[in-house]
Amino acid sequence: MNLFRLAGDMTHLVSVVVLLLKIHTIKSCAGVSLKTQELYALVFAARYLDLFVHFVSLYNTVMKLVFLASSFSIVWYMRKHKIVRRTYDREHDTFRHHFIVLPCLVLALLINERFTFREVMWAFSIYLEAVAILPQLVLLQRTRNIDNLTGQYVFFLGAYRVLYILNWIYRYFTEPHFVHWISWIAGIVQTVLYADFFYYYIISWKNNVKLELPA
């Protein structure tokens, strides 16, 4: 475990837990894409299948449980909670996310580290995570208002991805034959998706103006 990876996991944890706590506190999910949250819940469900069969460390197990619990709680709040569900922007959150789930599944069947159910599901979760943010970014562009709830969420998620890339670079140079093309390529694609959001986020922050994404 290196510092980049620990910082990346903590940033990822903060992004999900802060989103859950904010939705729980203000009883609103305005600006949050349910599609992205559902995709993330699917990512964790597909990736952590080995939760009870393959013990890596206490940290690993605890974090997996926290990620599963928080991502499914957010989906529950947005779909079932009588107050929160009314604040969900249904007509704008229209990204057809099955258009990205299926290609990711096909890709996982074609490109994986080993053709076993768990490995294919693991690759599927890696590919899906790379594009899971798309419905949220589309929603932000459509509604054009980025209140701090979603802005911070996307910002922390982007920061977690950047830290993970630094983690891979560190591990590549410190661990012999540490090569994971699947995670690396998907991770770089995912981080690039955040790049333009980061650009506009930092500009708006510097000019102290409301964050506007180009149409």
């Binding site: 996991d9 393959h54 997996k64 693991w122 540490f178 090569v179 995670s183």
Partner: peptide, 10 residues
Amino acid sequence: KSEALEHDEL
């Protein structure tokens, strides 16, 4: 090889 396949990252 089995080590490489053990996904130790979240």
